[in-house]
Computed example of a mutant assay.
Amino acid sequence: MTQKIIKFPLQLTDSESTKRNSLVLDGYSVIEKCIQNTEEKGMLYLEESVLLLVLEGSASLTFGKQTYTVAKNQLTLLKKARVYEYEKKGNSNNKNIYHELLIVLKDDLIKSFLTTTEKIIPKETNGEIGNGVHSMTECLIIFTESIDPYFNDKPEMYSGQLRLKLKEMLYHLGIGNQSLFQELTQLREPVKTEIQDVMEQNFFSPITLTDFAYISGRSLSSFKRDFQNIYNMPPATWIRKKRLEKAKEILETTQLPISEICFSLGFENVSHFSRIFKEYHGNTPNFYRAK
């Protein structure tokens, strides 16, 4: 079922079957633990880059045309300003439990680590499984176990301790996996990407033009200029046009409720969506659903 896009880390999934805990540093959550025993599907917009560590069960992720699965004791790096579709499944051999850690990687954390750390020489480089999925080293597994007692403030973790634990984790990543560590070091250096690819993969996402510019590796002014040269219209006009055309396609080919279509395409208000839909297509969403 299509769901409204969740923003992370500011907005979290919350249900009776889901237990989430946070470790907070400088006023924002840096590590989230999720344990649940029901399957879950949704769409996640990342406001910061995040490491996903799966400790039990599996998570399937889709970005653009790429889909990959992260299984038990595996991890992947999810980059900020992107929307991922996800499906979480528990381990049928362990009461259908799904267990994950989400570790937020703010730019200042990466910068501080790289500027204050001696050169790291990876000892193991065979942890990549494919499509950006990596095996967790024994040291990383032990790290996840070492922070578990600190959730729910039992015992209390001081900010200095948490900074040290995050630095410890980055050391484990650097020493244990060369390709993943290279991904981390490049987080603050966006690579210039074709605007057409950026827009087709993200036009339905509830993100700003600044986010689109970041994803494409451009300043906001350069992004707007390059976009205008390619499409001969402002980005906001193109985005609304694409979303409304996609909405009509979904209405004609699925039975999804109009509200779900509205939210999944980045519109936040159903009445506003219905009004501009009629202005663009000449008929209401209900007309195309009946058809």
Rank of each mutant, 00 (worst) to 15 (best):
148 D>K: 14
113 F>Q: 00
192 K>R: 14
122 P>W: 07
144 T>F: 06
222 S>L: 06
151 F>W: 06
119 K>S: 10
183 E>F: 02
143 F>L: 07
201 Q>F: 04
175 I>F: 14
115 T>Y: 09
149 P>W: 03
97 I>D: 05
116 T>D: 07
215 I>M: 01
181 F>D: 08
132 G>L: 03
124 E>V: 13
107 D>S: 14
148 D>V: 01
98 Y>L: 12
130 G>P: 06
133 V>C: 02
161 Q>V: 10
218 R>E: 05
167 K>R: 13
179 S>C: 01
159 S>Y: 06
209 L>Y: 07
177 N>A: 11
169 M>K: 03
193 T>R: 12
156 E>V: 13
202 N>F: 00
113 F>L: 01
190 P>I: 08
188 R>S: 15
211 D>Q: 12
117 T>K: 08
205 S>G: 06
111 K>C: 10
107 D>A: 11
221 S>D: 13
169 M>N: 04
166 L>K: 09
158 Y>T: 15
110 I>Q: 06
158 Y>W: 07
94 N>P: 06
100 E>Y: 03
153 D>S: 14
108 D>M: 04
124 E>L: 07
127 G>K: 14
166 L>T: 12
127 G>N: 14
179 S>M: 07
186 Q>G: 01
121 I>F: 09
137 T>R: 00
96 N>A: 02
218 R>W: 02
142 I>R: 13
174 G>Q: 04
199 M>L: 12
127 G>M: 10
163 R>E: 15
99 H>D: 14
142 I>G: 01
104 V>A: 04
186 Q>M: 12
153 D>F: 06
